[in-house]
Nucleic acid binder design. Structure first.
Length: 346
DNA sequence: AAGGCGTGGAA
DNA sequence: TTTCCAAGCCT
């Protein structure tokens, strides 16, 4: 309801959601998966879900192209559910966190098989789907279904930790963030509220050098002006990344390259790859024809490329034409090796 | 519940 | 160069 207030103007300082949404109506980023605020249009739950999964731990810039290609190739959840696993995994190549792609397919198929082809419209229903955790369930419920869910991502954690000066370290602070946020969620625009907070965290209340002078809720921010504002939210110390080493095999015959598929679980699970041994703490004795360094989340890897004449006798794999190697969907680690070999051949 | 799980851009 | 970290999920 829209009640006319008789309170003096500075009482608006209490209206967190009002100030935030006014700012969002003026400053919302135009994103491929987003419906403009105030347009009255309702976004397609399938597209909202697709975008949210891609955006997990991944930047907007990295996602945009993948989102366009996926939604063009598989316009509906039924199309995606009917897709070949290999096609989806190859299309995801380069985006990272490949369990998301496996769960994306599993979720699409669960929607078709168990939910009549339509997404559940409640947070709890969404939460039960593969690859949908607390954040994504809340985001889809709020954005696609207008449910007053409490959406908390890393941007929103930062905004709330600062605005309320919460110094509890993550992840324990999560409960406090939700508790602070819950009474602020406006019943009429929960999706815009969540997206406004994320835009605020992404563009104004940034990890370093926040632009507090442009903040719509800065007037009552408890961290504003503090020299240590960048310390919030408090995070646990990171562990050092170990160095690991491995070998990859370049097996070429008749202008084709021998590719294998990695096991479903573990690093780069389910992705096409160059064959090779386990990755270990010690460098290989063998010297190779190329070498790449690649940083993963929890270790750094140096991979040595060694030429081989033929696959192991019992090996499973496929001879992939060198001319169309880009379409094989190799993860970045192996793409780096392919690029090096192309440089060699000039 | 703490660690496994990618990548590329920014500072 | 190194470090940080982005619309997290799963086990």
């Amino acid at each position: 309801m829209s009640v006319q207030t008789s309170e003096p103007p500075d009482a608006a300082c209490g209206d967190f959601a009002g100030r935030l949404l006014d700012w969002y109506d003026r400053s919302a980023r135009a994103l491929p998966w987003r419906v403009p605020p105030g347009s009255g249009r309702v976004p397609d739950p399938y597209r909202v879900w697709m975008a949210e999964v891609m955006l997990q731990q991944t930047t907007v810039a990295a996602v945009a192209g993948y989102y366009e290609r996926f939604t063009a190739r598989w316009p509906t959840v039924a199309d995606l559910a009917a897709a070949d696993d290999a096609d989806v995994m190859a299309a995801w190549a380069g985006l990272g966190y490949y369990a998301r792609a496996r769960n994306l397919l599993a979720c699409a198929r669960a929607i078709v098989r168990d939910h009549g082809g339509g997404f559940p419209d409640s947070e709890a229903g969404l939460r039960s789907l593969p690859g949908v955790g607390d954040y994504t369930a809340a985001a889809v419920a709020a954005i696609a279904f207008g449910r007053p869910a409490v959406v908390v991502d890393a941007n929103i954690e930062r905004v709330i930790a600062r605005h309320r000066l919460i110094e509890t370290p993550l992840p324990a602070a999560k409960r406090a963030f939700k508790a602070e946020l819950a009474p602020l969620v406006p019943a009429d625009r929960p999706g815009d509220f969540a997206q406004a907070l994320m835009d605020l965290g992404a563009g104004v209340c940034t990890p370093r050098a926040p632009a507090c002078d442009r903040c719509p809720v800065g007037a009552d921010c408890r961290a504003r002006g503090r020299a240590d504002i960048e310390r919030l939210p408090v995070k646990p110390a990171k562990k050092a990344k170990p160095q690991r080493y491995g070998i990859a095999h370049w097996i070429e015959r008749d202008d084709r390259l021998w590719l294998v598929r990695r096991p479903e679980k573990g690093m780069l699970g389910g992705m096409r790859a160059l064959p090779g041994g386990e990755w270990a703490a010690m460098p290989p004795a063998e010297s190779g024809i190329a070498e790449v360094d690649h940083g993963f989340t929890h270790f750094d890897l140096r991979l040595t490329l060694v030429r081989r004449e033929a696959p192991l006798a019992a090996a499973e794999g496929e001879w992939w034409p060198l001319a169309t190697l880009d379409a094989a969907g190799l993860p970045t680690l192996y793409r780096k090796l392919v690029d090096k070999m192309r440089e060699r051949k000039g």
